[in-house]
């Protein structure tokens, strides 16, 4: 699974792009976020408040109950501020 981090999520995790292989019980976006939180202090800080974390699966906005799999591209980013 390919993970992308943008804006302060990248700054806090210290990662822009990574390949991960989550354990088998990680089946949804919500599971993935919970698993990522445990990967280190940077991840825990970045994901401390999930109200301000948006997730896209294969470049489409996704809810916590959306399934994720090994071939997916999952992006984590803050609420958008363009325009």
């Amino acid at each position: 699974m390919k993970l992308l981090y943008f804006a302060w999520l990248r700054a806090k995790t210290g990662v822009a792009v990574e390949e991960v292989t989550p354990p088998g019980e990680v089946a949804t976006v919500g599971d993935l976020l919970a698993w990522l939180k445990g990967r280190g202090p940077g991840y825990a800080e970045a994901l401390a408040d999930l109200q301000v974390v948006r997730v896209a699966v294969n470049q489409e906005y996704a809810d916590p109950d959306q399934p994720v799999g090994p071939d997916d591209e999952v992006a984590l980013f803050p609420p958008v501020t363009g325009g």
């Binding site: 943008f6 804006a7 896209a56 992006a75 980013f77 803050p78 958008v80 501020t81 363009g82 325009g83």
Partner: peptide, 14 residues
């Protein structure tokens, strides 16, 4: 267009 762009298009300002 500008209202939806501001809340849906993935851009971030630093």
């Amino acid at each position: 267009l500008i209202d939806w762009l501001k809340t849906k298009a993935p851009f971030w300002k630093l």
